Amino acid sequence: TSDVIVGFPGETEEEFMETYRFIQEIGYSELHVFPYSKRTGTPAARMTDQVDDETKNERVHRLITLSDQQAKEYASQFENEVLEVIPEELYDENESNTLYVGYTDNYLKVKFEATPDMVGKIVRVKLTKAGYPYNEGQFVRVMDEEEASITI
């Protein structure tokens, strides 16, 4: 993953597109995108070539769209693989369901059928459908303590 700030004073469309193409080439699994925010008292706040808010927001949304696309592409590499996941919480606390959410060791967020006693344990889950922000998985089994200690 990477953090990206767009709209720093003086950023041109050409420079933004250079960043965009670089991100496409790298193929991040996810981006954290922010618009530049002027901070009083900083040299950048005194610069005269501030990028307007509309342009900054449009660029932020373009990079978020690219990030979503790249996240799905990254996750699709792992479809039908069995991965280790630590269930953390219910997928939707307002519903009485058994879907839990956890992260794989390669930072994929997966929702799958589980039970409350699995929370915090390492379980094996088959990634059945890549998506963003959630991938879908199918519970395979809880790892025993010996397997888990080797993994950690």
Score class of each variant (00 low, 15 high):
8 F>Q: 00
12 T>S: 09
27 G>L: 07
28 Y>S: 01
30 E>P: 01
32 H>T: 14
32 H>F: 14
33 V>A: 04
33 V>Q: 03
36 Y>V: 03
37 S>L: 11
39 R>E: 10
40 T>C: 08
41 G>V: 05
43 P>W: 09
44 A>V: 04
46 R>N: 07
48 T>L: 03
50 Q>T: 00
51 V>G: 01
51 V>S: 01
52 D>Q: 04
52 D>E: 08
53 D>H: 04
55 T>P: 06
56 K>W: 00
56 K>Y: 09
57 N>A: 14
61 H>F: 15
64 I>T: 06
64 I>K: 14
67 S>T: 08
70 Q>K: 12
71 A>V: 09
72 K>T: 11
73 E>P: 07
74 Y>I: 07
74 Y>G: 01
75 A>H: 11
77 Q>G: 14
78 F>C: 00
79 E>L: 08
79 E>A: 10
80 N>K: 15
81 E>T: 15
85 V>A: 02
86 I>K: 12
95 E>T: 13
96 S>L: 14
97 N>Y: 00
97 N>M: 07
98 T>H: 15
101 V>D: 02
101 V>C: 06
103 Y>W: 11
106 N>P: 05
106 N>Q: 08
107 Y>A: 13
108 L>W: 09
109 K>S: 09
111 K>M: 13
111 K>Q: 10
114 A>K: 03
116 P>M: 07
119 V>P: 03
122 I>M: 11
124 R>V: 09
124 R>M: 14
124 R>W: 14
126 K>F: 12
126 K>I: 11
128 T>Y: 06
128 T>F: 00
132 Y>S: 09
